[in-house]
């Protein structure tokens, strides 16, 4: 079957109190090591930009930075930012202000848009490379993966790498009634490239395209990005979620 494999050259994931592969393994195994008191350390961001970052933005910029520390930004890098809920706390705050006294904070409004964090990240790095911001409900992470795939394989993009930055935090205020997945503040960033013939890669497939006799498919109850993290950390060969038809499949060196 013809599939587009992607190599994960570097990754980083952060949640309050959880910032190493060991921590994530413990959390995935059911230990409640989440510590909401721990804040992401983004002291590398100049103060005038740091003040514009919420917890969500700080988490995103932190894991993104950990990837570009290993693979510096150059003209062959493209950026894909993805978040299901985005800056929902800012949005709820704006809506409440409108109800209360009709005023809208210009700063909160400008920072509530879906590409605000992508914008701050690119300003910090003086990066003029194209970036996109994706949101697609429960399938936001797979949509971002597909975006990265098409950028890497498109002749027109001329891109060697894609930095995929995923981030979310729990719904707030009146939006909490729409909760239908795990609610923790977290961010995962991946440095992606086209798979090489001799390297490990991961490809995204549809469940229906899999051999139905294959019993090794795990349907994770976690959301897509945290399920993907579980695949990265475990010897499992493929993973899907209960709420989607997308499956991530590992390929060891192409046969």
């Amino acid at each position: 079957m013809n599939t587009l494999g992607i190599s994960v050259d570097a990754w980083a994931a952060w949640a309050p109190g959880i910032d190493s592969p060991n921590d994530w393994n413990a959390w995935l195994a059911g230990d409640s090591c989440l510590d909401e008191g721990v804040k992401p350390n983004v002291s590398f961001v100049p103060p005038m930009y740091r003040r514009r970052l919420s917890l969500l933005g700080k988490m995103a910029v932190l894991t993104a930075q950990q990837c570009v520390d290993q693979y510096p930004i150059d003209s062959s890098l493209r950026l894909v930012f993805a978040s299901r809920y985005g800056e929902n706390a800012r949005t709820v705050g704006i809506l409440n202000n409108i109800v209360d006294d009709g005023s809208v904070s210009p700063a909160a409004f400008s920072l509530s848009v879906h590409n605000a964090i992508a914008g701050i990240f690119s300003i910090i790095h003086n990066a003029t490379e194209p970036s996109v911001s994706v949101s697609a409900g429960q399938e936001t992470f797979s949509a971002a993966w597909i975006e990265a795939e098409q950028i890497l394989w498109s002749q027109m993009e001329n891109a060697d790498r894609v930095l995929l930055v995923y981030y979310d935090e729990p719904l707030t205020g009146d939006l909490t009634r729409f909760t239908d997945d795990i609610q923790i503040p977290f961010s995962i960033s991946l440095m992606l490239s086209k798979s090489q013939s001799n390297g490990e890669s991961i490809c995204l497939q549809n469940k229906r395209a899999l051999d139905s006799s294959d019993s090794s498919l795990n349907e994770s109850k976690l959301n897509q990005p945290l399920s993907f993290l579980r695949l990265l950390l475990s010897p499992e060969q493929m993973i899907s979620t209960t709420t989607s038809n997308w499956v991530w499949v590992k390929n060891s060196a192409n046969a």
Binding site: M48, S103, P106, A107, S110
Partner: peptide, 17 residues
């Protein structure tokens, strides 16, 4: 101080209030 145009709008709103 190095403030920008968004800051100007925000400060204007705060002064008005």
């Amino acid at each position: 101080l190095g403030l920008d145009s968004i800051d100007a709008l925000e400060l204007g709103l705060a002064l008005k209030n």
